[in-house]
Simulated assay, not measured.
Amino acid sequence: MMLRSKWLAAVSGISLAVAPSVVQAAPVGTAAGSDITNTVQVDYKVGGVSQTQVSATDTFKVDRKVNVTVATTDASAVSVSPGQTDAVTTFTVTNNSNATLDFLLAATNQSGGSAQFSGSDSFDGANVRVYVETNGTPGWQTDDTQAGALAGIASGDTATVYVLADMVLSAGPPAALPTNGSIATVVLTATAASGASQIGGTVAGSGGSAISQTPPGTANGQTTMETVFADAAYAPSGDTAYNGQHAARSDYQVAGALLSVNKYSRVVSDPVGSTNPRSIPGAVVEYCIVVSNASGAATAADVALSDVVPTEMTFVSGSVYLDGAFSAPDTCTSSGGSAGSDAANYNAGTTTVSNTFASIAATETRTLRFQATIN
């Protein structure tokens, strides 16, 4: 939890060692509600004789300056997979006010337009929600606290907030997934508030109401504490200056695998020994299956391939070969590959040839070949 506080000076060295993300920060300006007193003294003489000193004192109360800054700590769009759940963008919320405040937190999808880092917002993440860093370990974990507010953030303190979303377009089934390169931009807004309740004794909070500033036309009360909004605008989200809130954006960018599969067949022999074998009963047909991942795509993992041998054919035992080089127009060669096995790659009960490739990275190709005889 990136929370900075003036009371940290009282924390032991051991506590700092186990919570290195907690750092000390000084309050911002003179505390709201403080009384500033100034006294003028006048000494004088009459007929050369010093007279009793006269004095006058003025006291006024420091008003509350409300200023909050939201920023993303992501240096670039967060790379996500199609269908990924709990994708995380990271923000900080800093209380630049001269008073302890609560802050309401709201995360929303941007609706089109330019993204935060590059490109354009092109889809909305699902199940958008907000978590506050509370377990002391940087980066979102499941035991951080889902919250709608920050509670009791002291002047100068900074809290880390996570926005989570699922990378699906619709739940389905089957689920509709965003395509490779698509961008979802999210906006986190923090609004100055009071009355939020702490969750589990942490800075994560619930409830609370947005505070209002003293109407600008109201005369300044010398003995009362007025509230003045001093926050900056954040134009990309439509946020304006001096409204008691601030916002920031971050992006998710989909990095999906772009798999393509091609299947080829060629007759390698027939029962009459033709120079150019024909696909007659008794002929052996060799199948070549090629799976490729495109340039710039994400690595595909656990790529499971299965091919049911047609009922008009019989699988040739021991014919499975894996990862041989492809030779156009239709041949999976033995170059660089290795033999499969009937035990691992053929199910006689379902007459299915199969294999799971652990991964296929961008620009990589995997092949599987097997033979079957025409009945």
Rank of each mutant, 00 (worst) to 15 (best):
L105H: 02
L105K: 05
A106N: 12
A106C: 05
T108D: 13
T108M: 10
N109Y: 04
Q110C: 05
Q110R: 10
G112V: 09
G113W: 01
G113M: 00
A115I: 02
Q116W: 02
Q116F: 02
F117E: 08
F117M: 10
F117T: 13
S118E: 05
S118A: 12
G119K: 03
G119P: 03
G119Q: 07
G119S: 06
S120Y: 02
D121I: 00
F123N: 01
F123W: 07
D124Q: 15
G125K: 04
V128R: 09
R129I: 09
Y131H: 13
Y131Q: 12
E133N: 08
E133W: 07
P138S: 15
G139H: 12
G139Y: 08
W140C: 10
D143K: 04
D143G: 04
D144S: 07
Q146S: 15
G148Y: 03
G148P: 04
L150N: 04
L150C: 03
A151T: 11
A151M: 06
A151K: 13
G152T: 07
I153H: 01
I153F: 03
I153V: 15
A154R: 08
S155W: 00
S155D: 00
S155H: 00
G156N: 06
T158F: 12
A159E: 04
A159R: 05
T160H: 09
T160S: 15
V161D: 07
Y162L: 04
Y162T: 05
V163A: 03
L164P: 06
A165P: 01
D166L: 06
V168Q: 11
S170H: 10
S170P: 10
G172N: 10
G172E: 08
P173T: 11
P174Q: 14
A175M: 09
A175P: 11
L177R: 06
P178K: 04
P178D: 04
P178V: 08
P178M: 04
N180Y: 03
S182T: 10
I183E: 03
I183F: 02
A184D: 11
A184C: 13
V186K: 04
V186S: 00
L188P: 02
L188K: 01
T189F: 00
A190C: 01
T191W: 05
T191C: 06
A192P: 02
A193R: 00
A193M: 02
S194C: 05
S194V: 06
A196S: 12
S197R: 04
Q198V: 07
I199M: 02
G200Y: 08
G201L: 05
G201K: 02
T202R: 07
S206M: 12
S206A: 13
G208F: 11
G208H: 09
S209C: 06
S209Y: 09
S212D: 15
S212K: 15
S212T: 15
Q213I: 09
T214K: 09
P215C: 06
P216A: 13
P216H: 08
P216Y: 14
T218G: 10
T218S: 14
T218W: 11
G221R: 09
Q222S: 11
T223S: 14
M225F: 14
E226W: 13
E226S: 15
T227Q: 15
T227A: 13
A230G: 11
D231W: 11
A232C: 10
A233M: 11
Y234C: 11
A235F: 09
P236R: 10
